[in-house]
Every structure is written in C-alpha cells, then in structure tokens.
Simulated assay, not measured.
Amino acid sequence: MPAHYHYAILLDLSIIIVNYKTPQLILNCLASVYAHTSGINVEVIIVDNQSNDDSKAIIQQAYPTVRWFDMGYNAGFARANNLGIKHAQGRNVLLLNSDTLLLDNLLARCVRVLDENPDVAAVGAHQLSRDRQLRPNLYTTFGQMRRAFYIIPITPFFQKLLYRFVPDTQYADPSQVDWLSGAFLMTRPSTIARAGGLDESFFMYGEDVEWGHRLGQQGRMLLLPDAAFVHLEYGSSTDYQQHEVTYINRFKPQVQVSQLLWIRKQYGAGAYLLLMLHYVTMIPIVFLWKMAVNLRNRQPLFSELENQRAFAQQVRIFLRFFWQTLFNRPGFYKV
C-alpha cells in the first residue's frame, strides 16, 4: 500500500483557508488553531487569490508545514476553496475564514460529531464578534435570507404577510439549520462528492447558502448550540466597512448580485423575476416617498435624495447581470 495512502487515513481534518492579502490574520488564526486543537491530526491548506505580496513567505516561515496553492488570479471564495478541497487529504474538510479565531478545542468536537452521526452532512458553530459577543441577526434559514431582500414597510401586517409568503423551515432538532456559514463549515469529502463542490459561478457571498441547499440534501446541517468561534469579519474586504447600510441599501452590490444568483438557482426563474420586479418597481416609490417627506417638512423637493440615487444605482448593477442570471448561465458573477 503506498505511503501516501497511510498518511491520508491518519489525517482527521484538512483545514482550508483562502488568502487575499491577509497574512497577519492567518498567522493569528493558525496560532489559535494550534493552541486549542488536540486529539486529532490536521493539515492546513492555504489557497492564495493572487495577493501579490509576501503572504506565502510570512506564513510558511511561521508554519512551514502549511501546504500552499496559488490560484494565479483573484478567483473568489468558491473556486479557491474547491481547489483546496481537491488537494485535501483529510477524512474531513473544514472551510475556515482567515479572519477567525478559535477559543477551545472546537475542531476535535466537530470531527467527533461527524464521526458519531453519519446522518449529519455538515457542522458549524456560532459566531462571536471581536468583543466576544454573540453576533446577532445571522441567518440560519433560507426564509430569513429571502425575507431580507424585500423592502416593505416595517409594520406587523406587512411583516406577517411576508412571513406567510416566505416561511422558515421547521425542524424537530433546534440545532438543525438550512445552511451554515462558509466562515466555519466542516463536512466530509464523501459528502462533497455526492453534493458537488461550491458553485464556481459565485465570486463572493451566497455560495455557502447555495451549497448549504445541496449539502442539506445529503443529511442534516447542524449548528452546534454551545460552540462558538470569533469572526472578525471582512478581513480581506476593507471597502465593505465603508458601505453605508440603510433600510433600502442593505447590502453591498456584490452581496446582492450573488444572492440573486442563489435565488435563481434554488427557487427558479419565477422567484428571481419577482424579486427583480420588486426592485425595479421600488425605484420610483422610494423617490416619491422621500419627495413627499421633503414637502411635509418644507424642504426643497429634490433635497437629500442620495440614498434613493444609491438604490437606483444598485438596481442598475443588478440589471447588468439580468439575462445571465435569468437563464442561469455559467460564468463569473463578479461586480
């Protein structure tokens, strides 16, 4: 039997981290991994999205056993992780963001859950902010995600109506969810072989939601109730922190383009068209509403319309991908 076959069997876990100019974050992440992980054998795979910096030298100097792969271009999250999965030698695989920190022996616990529960397709943990507080408003059902896309009045009547139109999945096990964040997602290569890898049409965002649907068809998706890790968030995406979030501009354009692609893939052309019709129809509504507010407050009619203009600009970006998304054409949906 070849020596590399024994090596593969001995590895309990392959940790895959995608790098884009975040060497210090990865050093901190790996320090927490090695400080808190015991009882299992792990390998670390880093896939670099053309950082064009000293990331490889910096990280491998500190952790020479890290296996390094270069994409050769900024391939985004799905394609880079798929390359890591392809080269993984562990009997389990963990997708781990570079901007995460472990606080305890979470990895061994997740491996044990997968070992002891063959009906579980994937496991994840709760996310803590940098100040170690549980991050609120993180979606775990497809319904929560879909409802967030609709811009409707914040009144009980409309919220209840939307919930009836887009309900949540109900599970007997409170730990079971529809999908798990790609910031920390552990599964088996055998499960990936049945479900397929991450959809490479996605550049960033939404790919873990879409993958969750396919993984969930292979077994239960578990969010361990008393398990958590720190997610600093947007480590390689500094421009996100400059994005002003308002009620009508809730997401960065890349996030929304990716989520619209997910809607099309999972729910079909009708659901996608309905959402796009909603956005296009909302353009004159948000302008007229703000102008009416200006009149009521005796302000110039066309004053303070920056938020509305930003919304119209976002919808124009969505429309750039309209035909490609409608016909679900393979591609690279990068804004």
Rank of each mutant, 00 (worst) to 15 (best):
287 F>V: 04
55 S>I: 00
316 R>E: 03
160 K>M: 12
63 Y>Q: 06
134 L>N: 10
293 V>D: 14
2 P>C: 06
6 H>R: 11
208 D>K: 00
200 E>C: 11
87 H>G: 01
72 G>P: 11
182 G>Y: 10
99 D>Q: 00
78 A>C: 13
68 W>P: 15
236 S>V: 00
309 R>A: 10
244 E>V: 15
223 L>R: 07
40 I>K: 14
145 M>R: 09
71 M>P: 12
151 I>G: 00
69 F>H: 15
322 F>M: 04
61 Q>L: 01
304 E>L: 10
276 M>K: 05
205 Y>D: 08
46 I>P: 03
203 F>Q: 12
41 N>Y: 04
118 P>C: 01
315 V>Y: 06
211 W>M: 11
141 T>L: 01
18 V>G: 08
52 N>P: 01
183 A>K: 08
9 I>K: 10
98 S>G: 15
58 I>E: 12
217 Q>E: 15
331 G>E: 03
203 F>T: 05
125 A>M: 02
102 L>D: 12
107 L>F: 11
221 M>N: 08
19 N>L: 09
99 D>H: 08
331 G>M: 03
82 N>E: 01
140 T>D: 01
201 S>E: 13
70 D>Y: 11
159 Q>S: 15
46 I>T: 06
206 G>V: 06
137 N>L: 14
307 N>T: 15
39 G>E: 05
194 R>T: 12
76 G>T: 07
104 D>A: 13
152 I>M: 09
52 N>K: 14
55 S>L: 03
